Simulated scan of single mutants.
Amino acid sequence: MRSVVLAATAAVSVVLIAACGSDTTTDRAAPSSTPVAAEPAVAPAPTTPPIGTTIEVGNEPEGVVIGTAGIAAVGVRRPDGLTLVDVRAGRVIRTIETRGAPRHLELAGPNGPVIVPLETSNTVTEMSFDGTFGPIATGVGDLPHDAVRTSDGTLVGTNEHGGGALFLRDGKVVKSLPAGPPQPGGVAAVGRYAAMADVQGNGVFVYDGTTMTEVAQKKIGTRLTHAHALSGGLVAFADTDGGAVLVERITPQVVDVARIDAPGKPYGLSYDDRTKTLLVTLGSTNTLRLVDMSDPSKPRIRGDVPTVQQPNSVAMDPVTGIVAVTGSAPGAASSLQLIPADLLPR
């Protein structure tokens, strides 16, 4: 069944463009004076079949999150929307149409709502897993690419084309800060802090959601893209151009903890606190790497499994351990790969 967002999203009109991931039909050209930003690998067709099952969810699925009830939200494009999937039953529930395609999706709580930046309308909203939308914040910077909720309730977003950070409360922008990161990509929440990755190679910038100020910065890696909070005040950063995942403690100072080898343009990240498992997509090899983070200072690679083409995003069901991977290659099968926990390396 397909449900159209009506009153809550009538003001939202978005034209799809590429964010920190490229889009072959709408790839934006950066000015010649702008440093090259990190991008996901252009993945070849898989040579090994993906494990588990795949289901059609919509064209070029990108961001994916899964709540504690086993429902996933997947951002899709052309037609644009959010597809809700019961990962335990392996079936699509419905697609909620929007006039734009979300890329990064984040959970505001264990079972939602889902934080949904709609980039080219400069809009950020939230959606519950029943398809209900919350307040719609408009006029949110210049291409708000990712947003997280800090412990005080502030939404902190990345202003990808404008640089710097955006702060939202009660559906309104209450403050914005200039770069800071000239082109922020992914962001992760650690208590009251939000740690942003800069895709142009300037490392990590940390913001305090309560005071709405920049409190730390550190140059790490080559060029980062995504960020994902772990437990214990840690954040994993995909150093996409450096072939690694960097684990940092946010105090709010950025303190090095570990480097995880991840050749093949690491991009999508997820984490399961129950099993202390970090999941990393390796785009150039159509592979998912699982890492045991029981001892964060000594990560242990559990193994790799084959994925759908262009695995840009990944999430794990926090109850059953089912893993969902988006197949984001333009023109390829519009698929979401579902991997049962018993097929994953132990």
Rank of each mutant, 00 (worst) to 15 (best):
H161T: 14
T210P: 15
L168K: 02
G139S: 07
V140K: 03
T211D: 10
R169K: 15
G153A: 03
L143T: 11
K218Y: 08
G171N: 13
P182A: 13
T154R: 01
R169W: 14
G201V: 02
A147W: 02
P182D: 11
H145A: 13
V173N: 04
L166M: 10
A189H: 10
Q217S: 07
V190M: 13
K175D: 02
Q217G: 05
V156D: 10
A179D: 11
L166N: 05
F133H: 01
P184A: 04
S176T: 04
T213D: 14
T211Q: 12
V140C: 07
R149A: 11
G185F: 08
G186S: 03
D142Q: 13
S151D: 13
V215A: 02
L177K: 12
E160S: 08
V199S: 09
V148C: 03
V174P: 05
I220V: 07
M212Y: 09
D146N: 15
R192N: 15
Y207M: 02
G191H: 14
A188T: 04
G186H: 00
L177F: 12
G186K: 01
D142M: 12
Q217I: 08
T138G: 14
L168Y: 03
R192F: 15
K218T: 05
R192G: 14
T132L: 00
N159S: 14
Q200G: 01
M196C: 02
V187H: 02
K218R: 07
V148Q: 03
S176Y: 10
V206C: 00
K219C: 08
T210F: 15
K175N: 06
L166V: 14
K172F: 11
M196W: 07
L177I: 14
A189R: 09
E160I: 11
A147M: 02
G186W: 04
P135V: 01
P144S: 08
A189D: 10
A179I: 08
Q217W: 04
G185E: 06
D198L: 07
V156I: 12
V204E: 00
L155D: 00
V190Y: 12
I220W: 08
G162M: 15
D198W: 05
Q183G: 11
G209L: 09
S151L: 07
K219A: 11
P181S: 12
Q217T: 08
N202E: 10
D142V: 07
G191N: 09
H145W: 05
V204F: 02
P181F: 13
S151P: 10
D170T: 09
L166K: 01
E160R: 13
P181H: 06
V204K: 02
F167Q: 01
N159M: 09
V215H: 04
M212G: 11
L168P: 07
T210K: 15
G164W: 01
G139C: 13
A194M: 06
H161R: 15
A197V: 07
K175C: 05
S151Q: 05
G180K: 08
A165W: 11
